[in-house]
Design a binder for these strands. Structure first.
Length: 152
DNA sequence: GCCAACGTTGGC
DNA sequence: GCCAACGTTGGC
């Protein structure tokens, strides 16, 4: 089982929103590297949910992949902010996966603490200027974070 | 709100 | 195919 980290701006969609809905299509990914990671995800993979663009960015909870990658319908919707005129239904450019809420991490694990963890030294998440919205997480990184939190 | 870093676009 | 311009991301 692989692990991943998904970034979200809680002002747009937060872990609490995911908890309230139970399950949600993770739509709007418009970056090829992130899309390729989406396509590697398998049902049952567990992911960290990370809040960005907040006073203390960091990992706030965990979720589970419940569908494999399939075309993101928002790419075909001219009303959607994620509309992509260059993508055709015959050959969709962008995918999404559906994720289900599992738990909050208490306490949250801030980016600052991740930077201090040796397991994360090579993770793109802690690199300056990193803009990847989906990041692979190794087993040791996954365990190191879980060792610091209670799942609530 | 600022701005560095990055990915994408498009003129040539 | 290069690369300047542009738009976006995300920490601070």
């Amino acid at each position: 089982m692989a692990h991943w980290l998904l970034k979200t701006e809680p002002e747009a969609f937060s872990l609490d929103d995911l908890k309230a809905r139970g399950q949600e299509p993770w739509d709007g990914i418009r970056n090829y590297q992130a899309r390729n990671f989406l396509r590697q995800m398998r049902v049952g993979d567990e992911v960290f949910i990370y809040h960005s663009r907040v006073p203390v960015p960091g990992i706030v909870g965990i979720a589970r992949i419940v569908t494999e990658a399939h075309p993101d319908p928002t790419q075909f919707d001219p009303q959607s902010p994620y509309y992509d005129a260059g993508s055709s239904p015959a050959d969709p450019r962008w995918d999404l996966v559906d994720i289900a809420y599992l738990a909050h991490c208490v306490p949250a694990v801030s980016l600052e603490s991740l930077r201090e963890m040796p397991e994360f030294a090579d993770n793109p998440l802690v690199r300056k200027g990193n803009r990847l919205s989906i990041v692979p997480i190794s087993e040791s990184q996954w365990q190191a974070v879980l060792a610091r939190v209670t799942l609530v």
